[in-house]
Amino acid sequence: MNQLRCERDGCSRMAFFRSHTCLEHSQDSTAAATAAIDFLLQQSELRDLCFDGLCMSGLQLSGRTFERCSLRHCAIERCELSRVKFNLCFLEFARISSCSFAHSDIRRSVFGVSRLSSNDFSDCELIECNFNGVSCTDTCFDDSDLLSSRFIAADLSRVGFRNCNVREVHFGNTSLASCDFRYSNIEDAYRQIPGRRL
């Protein structure tokens, strides 16, 4: 992972893609963001890059491979991310809406405390992913393998988990409203609140 830090005094954030500062402290943040989006569109494999705070809307990013990338605090809207590969990527505090991640392979990635709305994660491999503290509405995880992922202290509303593998998935302190677990192996998931049933 790129460990360069923002050069601005008192700022501890990571330096943005091809920059010495974070996006907020960039002299021309619009140009920096445009360069990052151009790079994202051109490259099929992205490794050890920092795109923190980037706003992405309507991008076609299907089939990309993201490895050890940081997308913290990003706003990702109406993007096509089907068949992407994420490994050890960090998307915490992101706002992700109306995106398709269908048929993706996402491993050991962190979505913690993000806001997810109207996304499609159907038929995905979501192995050891961290969704702790997310606010997730109208999202579909149907037919996905969620092995060892965690949704601790999450707020899930109208979320579909039909025909999923939820073995060793943690739903402790999770608010579940109108969530559908039909045909999933819920007996293999962890539910830490006594009396609460999935």
Binding site: V110, V113, N130
Partner: peptide, 9 residues
Amino acid sequence: FGPPTTVAV
């Protein structure tokens, strides 16, 4: 055990 996380999360 389990997935990675961050201090902020």
